[in-house]
């Protein structure tokens, strides 16, 4: 038998005992908290993608006559404002939907890029070892010991804020946790039987690392990625609030809080709703990560999948 057919045979066997997608679906239906979190995230993504369709008003539409209206009030022309308006008469609900687009994509792209960078560095370092591993891990330790928000603040002060710079800064400052985890996982996998088997069949190193090891260590990395998205959404809000992130008039959740701060005594809804949106998004991501960790843990998994 040649290499490929042995590999194929092994994969067919593995698939028989593998937990399938429908098992996960059944498991999440049983966990009400995780279900609520995923429903919220799905709604968020749908709103983000179809902001033009779902937003009842234009996010930048000025209407000075209807400034600072409280939630559930009607404007001068009879239009309805679900979550009220800001001082320029812009609809808070519509701005929240458009703001989600900015905040969520900064989180997703930033965390995705740092995951890509970190996992590549970590897996190769763990598998290769030697001087390369030493240098990568020193860099990881060193960068992890720096205050990342402060460094981000300084870099954005020098480069200027904005969507693209924000994502670049996040990817450069957040890859280390992924690298550290991936390296640990690769270190374990290096001596695993399946890797030894692949190696003895003459599989190339790159193929071993990215085709054999990566799928086997994906679960903890996905958990970390979910947590990191939440962290980046929080950081984006903080940096935008300070004026170094997304620049006005783009609506971002952090910026909306910053804008509303002046009116905090008279118009509580300006600050409350964007903060609540960030909170619910981050909480849902954390709850979902918790759930993924529990279901993919081989020790705990049986309880989630098999329990009737």
């Amino acid at each position: 038998m040649d290499t490929n057919s042995i590999e194929l045979e092994a994969r067919k066997d593995a698939r028989d005992v593998r937990v399938t997608g429908s098992d996960y679906l059944r498991a999440i239906l049983k966990d009400r908290v995780a279900l609520a979190a995923s429903i919220f995230l799905v709604i968020l993504v749908v709103f983000t993608l179809g902001a033009e369709f779902f937003a009842p008003h234009r996010p930048m539409g000025l209407n000075l006559r209807d400034g600072l209206l409280p939630p559930f009030s009607s404007g001068s022309k009879g239009e309805f404002y679900l979550l009220g308006t800001d001082e320029l008469g812009r609809d808070i609900f519509s701005r929240l939907i458009y703001g989600a687009r900015v905040s969520v994509s900064v989180g997703l792209i930033g965390a995705g890029l740092s995951c890509l960078l970190g996992v590549t560095m970590g897996l190769t370092a763990g598998y290769r070892g030697g001087l390369y591993e030493d240098i990568v891990m020193r860099l990881v330790d060193g960068m992890l010991s720096l205050p990342s928000l402060l460094v981000a603040l300084f870099v954005l002060f020098v480069l200027g804020g904005g969507f693209v710079n924000l994502i670049l800064v996040f990817s450069v400052l957040h890859w280390m946790v992924f690298a550290r985890m991936a390296r640990g996982l690769a270190l374990d996998a290096r001596t695993a039987t399946y890797v030894q088997a692949a190696k003895s069949l003459g599989t190339t190193e790159i193929r071993i690392v990215f085709y054999h090891i990566l799928p086997n260590v994906a679960a903890p990395i996905i958990v970390l990625l979910t947590l990191e998205i939440a962290i980046l959404i929080l950081s984006e809000a903080s940096l935008s609030f300070l004026g170094f992130g997304v620049q006005p008039p783009d609506p971002s959740w952090g910026l909306m809080i910053a804008d509303g701060r002046e009116h905090i005594r008279s118009a509580w809804w300006l600050v409350t709703f964007p903060g609540l949106a960030i909170f619910l998004t981050a909480l849902s991501l954390n709850l979902l990560a918790n759930w993924v960790r529990a279901v993919t843990d081989p020790v705990q998994r049986w309880r989630w999948i098999t329990a009737s």
Partner: peptide
Amino acid sequence: TVLSLAGVSIVQFWLGLMLIVFFAV
């Protein structure tokens, strides 16, 4: 579990503003 996840998920400066609105204002 939910409270500790909430503590990690909250935006600190927003929590500060909410505390100001409630306890100070």
